[in-house]
Design a protein around this nucleic acid. Structure first.
Lengths: 211, 211
DNA sequence: GGCTATTCATAATC
DNA sequence: GATTATGAATAGCC
């Protein structure tokens, strides 16, 4: 009873969901040639929810649906007064975020590790254990202690900064409700959609040692 | 040309968007009494995107739309292979999150500050400046230095933990793609929707000193 | 929490 | 990036 509309037969439809060449209509008519109400589109087609194989298609879908997702988030936020944040890590490693989480995610996931690389333990002769700031203090050689403390101190400093920012955020996850939702000509602004390049393909965080 | 369909006149429609009593149809007919194809619903109505005044209505909308939002996020994730995370802070202070962000948010925004309260600077005689771990090392009195270093060390330890967790996350923001998207009977599971109580009304983070 | 009619999102296509 | 027809989300009700 639900999919009764599938029975409507248009010139476009192939007998039974049979695959057809993308340009099956090329050279058919340009809408003016034929008197029949030739449809120029088959409209939205039902798709299976599984990874899209064709790369270009996948990218398009990512763009469109991400936009839609953000819009939904914005609406939900405005309608209910909820604070919302959305983060999307695209396959190619780009981060698109909605709300103010990007501050949090960006700062913590991407930048913090960098700030932790000052002191790097005993040269690279050491085997690849945990990074220096995770190992027990006892493992730090006497002669490195000064540098170690300095690094620790700096780490603390950076940490402090981040926490402060976060505490501000928490109150202000003001996120969406604050920006003027211009539903008609709605489009994401830099405020709600930030795009960041990852240096390279590694979407992994580099923690501590090794260059 | 777009809003032509508003002209369709059903028994339900009041002359011109004029407000009507909620139970305007009470006692009209129960679908069997009338031969006319009496509509049992006016279907989805267009609404303005602004905070919903009626609380109960707002809650319903929050539930429905949050669910929809998460579903969209799930689909986007599966279709494009992107890693997605969504966090919603409801007005009443509940957190509903999608993906693994909750780990991140929970850990950092809520729990981390607690772990930083070990060393608390010079008693409470000190005025309410920055918390100890943000102030310069020089401000730490000689006699407290040992405790200070210990705390700093502990801080470092906690931090290490968190960063590790996060670095795992980054790879694994595996989030949605991993759970079986059961589109038909789709419903959020504990895996993707976690609900957390805030201790009290304060959605603010308590940082450092003072009890 | 389920139902229906309608609005809204979007796959295909240009 | 724009258009169009159709699949999906959902507002108002029970």
């Amino acid at each position: 009873m639900e999919n009764m509309r599938e029975t409507s037969s248009i010139a476009f439809l192939t007998p039974k969901d049979q695959p057809q060449t993308p340009n099956a209509l090329v050279g058919q008519s340009k809408k003016e040639l034929s008197a029949k109400p030739t449809k120029t589109s088959r409209g939205r087609q039902k798709i299976e929810i599984k990874e899209i194989d064709v790369v270009s298609k996948r990218h398009v879908t990512f763009s469109k649906r991400r936009r839609g997702l953000f819009k939904k988030a914005a609406e939900l936020s405005v309608l209910t007064g909820a604070k919302i944040a959305v983060i999307t890590f695209s396959q190619c490693g780009r981060i698109y975020s909605f709300g103010h989480v990007d501050t949090l995610i960006d700062k913590y996931v991407r930048k913090m590790p960098v700030n932790l690389e000052s002191y790097r333990g005993d040269d690279e002769t050491e085997e690849q254990g945990d990074p220096w700031w995770v190992r027990p203090v006892e493992s730090v050689p006497e002669e490195d202690l000064e540098e170690y403390v300095a690094s620790l101190s700096k780490l603390r400093e950076n940490l402090g900064q981040r926490i402060i920012e976060m505490s501000n955020m928490d109150r202000t996850v003001e996120v969406v409700p604050s920006w003027p939702l211009n539903m008609m000509g709605w489009k994401p602004t830099m405020d709600m959609q930030s795009m960041e390049n990852m240096t390279d393909g590694t979407s992994r965080i580099r923690i501590g040692q090794n260059g």
